[in-house]
């Protein structure tokens, strides 16, 4: 189990992120939780790319190399994650402008009030 510690850490991060995302009432914390959740998955990929005694996948140097494919996937995924975060934060700004709070319960209460 110990030699697979990074996998356990990745799963722990996924769990922590998901718990914050679901449980925290503060919308900013939810977005932070989402980021932790995603990076946990990134850790899983990058761990899978590591190779005993390997080096960065630069073919000009001598091998063996780490696996370039998961690294590329995670490069893409990081950019996707930032894009999602940016949109989420833009939504937060708009919600705050509208309701003056970023606590989900308070926003919901405000929406209910507006409906009546």
């Amino acid at each position: 189990m110990l030699e697979r510690l990074p996998y356990l850490a990745a799963i722990a991060l996924v769990g922590i992120g998901l718990a914050v995302l679901v449980d925290d009432e503060h919308l900013v914390k939810k977005v932070l939780g989402l980021n932790v959740f995603q990076t946990g998955i990134f850790l899983f990929f990058v761990t899978a790319a590591a190779r005993e005694g390997g080096s960065a996948p630069n073919v000009a140097k001598a091998g063996p190399y780490a696996n370039p494919l998961p690294q590329v996937l995670i490069l893409t995924a990081i950019v996707v994650g930032v894009s999602v975060t940016a949109v989420a934060l833009a939504l937060l700004v708009r919600i705050h402008a509208e309701y003056g709070t970023l606590r989900e319960d308070a926003v919901r209460a405000a929406i209910e009030e507006g409906r009546e």
């Binding site: 996924v14 998901l18 995302l21 919308l27 939810k30 977005v31 989402l34 959740f37 995603q38 998955i41 899983f44 990929f45 899978a48 998961p70 996937l73 995924a77 999602v84 949109v87 989420a88 939504l91 937060l92 708009r94 919600i95 509208e98 309701y99 989900e104 926003v107 919901r108 405000a110 929406i111 507006g114």
Partner: peptide
């Protein structure tokens, strides 16, 4: 205003879905 909150909820849940899928790809 409710649209922004709905969109954020959609974003959070939707991204979790996509990320779980990505985890599966891993």
């Amino acid at each position: 205003g409710a649209a922004a909150l709905a969109a954020l909820k959609y974003l959070l849940v939707g991204t979790v879905g996509a990320s779980l899928y990505l985890f599966g790809v891993g």
